[in-house]
Simulated assay, not measured.
Amino acid sequence: MELDSPREDASVEPAVTLEGQLREIYARAAYTHKTHEKMADRYVTRYKHIKTAEIILSAVATSSLLLAVLGDSHVGTIVGAALSTVLLGFALYFKEASLGEQAQKHSDVASKLWGVRESLLSLLVDMKDGRPIQEIRAARDQLNNLLEEIYKAAPRTNSAAYLDAQKALKASEELFFTDEELDRMLPKQLRTKRS
């Protein structure tokens, strides 16, 4: 009876599994990066909408109070007081929500993840170009540690931001360029199609 001998392609298999793992890590980092970008966008949009509403309400409240003072209108006083109360609610919400601060936190996390994502992409390229597997593993371990630290400090996201990220990555292909787009951005010496 013959014992199972190691597969002849055993030397290739670790590289294949390592590449698969790096691709998975890259994909997760890309999704998380884009999700934090979309979360920041959501906070900025909410901030802008509330600020616009605040300006409109302030203008209407001021106008109604001026009309009440100049025309001695009871209705103007009531409208002005009601709108001032709504404005107070907005001010209290802003004090607690800190939308700008939340947007900045998500932007910071996205920036850090972008760096890791690009490092992972470079690592995949290095692997294809023949960089030694042990060096790739060491770099992967460092990047995993960095990702762990980033994820620990990251604010939570929500499913709406994840769906926005999914749409951006899958449908809009926000991370990718066509060959023609790349050629238009690169100097002539680096273009694939010389024109």
Score class of each variant (00 low, 15 high):
L70A: 12
D41W: 01
Q166P: 00
Y162I: 11
Y43M: 05
T35Y: 01
D183Y: 09
K188G: 06
A68M: 03
A30W: 00
K193W: 11
S64K: 01
M39G: 00
S195T: 13
Q21Y: 15
R28L: 11
M185A: 15
Y47L: 15
R140P: 05
A15T: 08
G80C: 04
A27R: 12
I150T: 05
E173A: 09
L124Y: 04
A110L: 08
M185R: 15
I50Y: 08
H74K: 11
F177Q: 06
L67A: 06
T35A: 09
A10I: 00
A81H: 04
S195K: 15
Y93E: 11
K48M: 09
Y26H: 11
H36P: 04
V116N: 03
D9A: 01
V116A: 06
F94Y: 11
D164R: 03
N145C: 07
Q166I: 00
A97Q: 10
V79G: 02
S98D: 14
N145H: 14
G100R: 12
Y47V: 01
L83S: 09
V79L: 12
I25M: 14
S107N: 10
D41Q: 10
L190Y: 15
Q21R: 15
S63W: 08
D183F: 08
S111M: 13
K152N: 06
L66V: 14
T62D: 03
S5M: 01
V16Y: 03
K34T: 10
L147Q: 07
E174H: 00
K170F: 07
D179M: 11
F177A: 03
T17I: 06
A139L: 13
A97V: 03
D129Y: 14
E101T: 14
R137N: 13
A61L: 07
K193P: 02
L87C: 05
E37N: 03
S11A: 04
A160V: 09
D4C: 00
D164Q: 07
T192N: 12
T35R: 07
A53N: 12
I55L: 15
L22T: 05
G100L: 10
I50D: 05
T192D: 10
G76N: 05
D126V: 08
G76Q: 06
R42A: 12
S119L: 11
T45S: 09
Y151H: 07
D183H: 09
G71K: 08
V69M: 09
H33P: 00
A10F: 01
F177V: 02
L87R: 06
L169N: 02
L92M: 14
L143P: 05
D164N: 08
A154D: 02
E181C: 02
A171N: 12
S11Q: 02
D108V: 12
A161R: 01
A68I: 01
V69D: 01
L123Y: 08
Q102E: 14
H74N: 03
R137S: 13
L175R: 08
A53S: 14
Y93T: 07
Y151N: 07
A27G: 02
A103G: 10
F177L: 14
E37P: 00
E149D: 14
E181M: 07
A40M: 03
K167I: 06
R156E: 13
A161T: 00
A153M: 03
E2Y: 09
L65T: 09
Y43V: 01
R28F: 06
L124H: 04
E24P: 01
E8R: 00
